[in-house]
Amino acid sequence: MVKELTCINCPLGCSLTVTLEGDKVTEVKGNTCPRGEAYAKKEVTNPTRIVTSTVRVAGGTKEMINVKTEKDIPKGLIFDVAGALKGVTVSAPVAIGDIILKDVCGTGVNIIAAGNVPLR
C-alpha cells in the first residue's frame, strides 16, 4: 500500500510517499531530512502529536500560563489530554519547564510550563 503524507516537522512541509507492506514501512520518498523519514514511519503506524494549551494561574502577573506535553503523545489522546487540563489552576511563580501535571492520561508524559509567569 502507498500513502501520501505532508510532513509536519517544519514549515517546508515536504510531500512524502510512504510504501507499506502490511504494517511495515518499506520505503519513504520525498523527505529532505531524516526527521521526515521518522515522521512518515510514525504517522502510518502510531501517529503522535505535541499538544499545547493553557491553564489558569493564581497570584501571577498574567491570567494564563501556556503549557505543552514534554514529548509527543498518541494522536488519539489529544482530546483526553486537553480535557485533563480543564480546571487546572497553578500558583505563581511558574517558569519554563516546571511540571504542571505528571504522567498525563497515563501516557507517561508530563505537562510542562512553556512560558514564564512571575509573582504579582
Partner: peptide, 12 residues
C-alpha cells in the same frame, strides 16, 4: 497558510 498547518490543525 502552511501545508503543515492544514494537516495538523484541520485534517487532524
Amino acid at each position: 497558510g502552511l501545508k503543515r498547518n492544514i494537516v495538523q490543525c484541520l485534517n487532524d
